[in-house]
């Protein structure tokens, strides 16, 4: 995927929301979908099971219009969190320009977070992507739950965010931290325009 196409004057950013099942990835996209004016958004594709679990992936295209002469669009994807859908995760991860890792802040989901993060690193590595070069931010979701059920942002940072990238506390259901996360990853992805020059 070409991040910036100088000839066609297009910028396309593919951002993948990654994380364990039921951590709130689809909820993030739904909140964003709800806030984007109709004229700016495409149809949100969501393939879900009866239990509202993501079966394949969610896809939300957002048209940001012409910025500095470049037609700019964001494509937001989620991956299915359940461990047996790894093939789909690999597929969705292909060509990603940035990753939002949505962690479930609940203490009981601690191991699921670790496992999913390791899975992300394995899948990136398998695709020949240097994990250190991939723009990534962490979102610690469900911070609205009672304090005794969730881990603090500092604890989650220590457990997951060993690269010290930007992290956001969030309550995706009510929207808190959703756009902050999206801004954070967008900034990282777009900064690569200048650093990396035109992508192939």
């Amino acid at each position: 995927m070409s991040l910036v196409n100088f000839t066609a004057r297009e910028i396309t950013c593919k951002i993948v929301y990654y994380g364990p099942g039921r951590s709130g990835k689809t909820t993030n996209l739904q909140y964003v979908f709800g806030r984007v004016p109709e004229t700016r958004r495409g149809r949100m594709v969501s393939l879900a099971t009866h239990g509202d679990r993501t079966l394949f992936f969610d896809f939300l295209p957002i048209e940001l219009g012409s910025i500095s002469g470049f037609t700019t669009r964001f494509q937001l994807y989620t991956v299915p969190g359940q461990s047996y859908y790894n093939a789909t995760r690999k597929l969705v991860l292909q060509g990603a320009d940035g990753v939002v890792f949505v962690a479930d802040s609940q203490a009981r989901r601690f191991d699921d977070n670790i496992e999913s993060l390791q899975n992300l690193q394995e899948n990136l590595l398998e695709q020949g992507v240097d994990v250190r070069q991939m723009p990534i931010v962490f979102q610690y979701n469900k911070q609205d739950l009672p304090r005794d059920l969730v881990l603090a942002r500092a604890d989650l940072d220590e457990a997951l965010n060993f690269r010290g990238v930007e992290s956001f506390a969030a309550d995706a259901l009510h929207g808190s931290g959703v756009f902050e996360t999206l801004k954070g990853i967008s900034e990282l992805v777009l900064r690569k325009l200048a650093v990396g020059g035109p992508a192939a």
Binding site: R35, S68, L182, S186, L193
Partner: peptide, 21 residues
Amino acid sequence: RDEFADFLSEVSATVSQQVES
């Protein structure tokens, strides 16, 4: 509070800065 407008503003500034860099 237009979160999308905020987002758009930030993205625009970044794109402008980067593309025009």
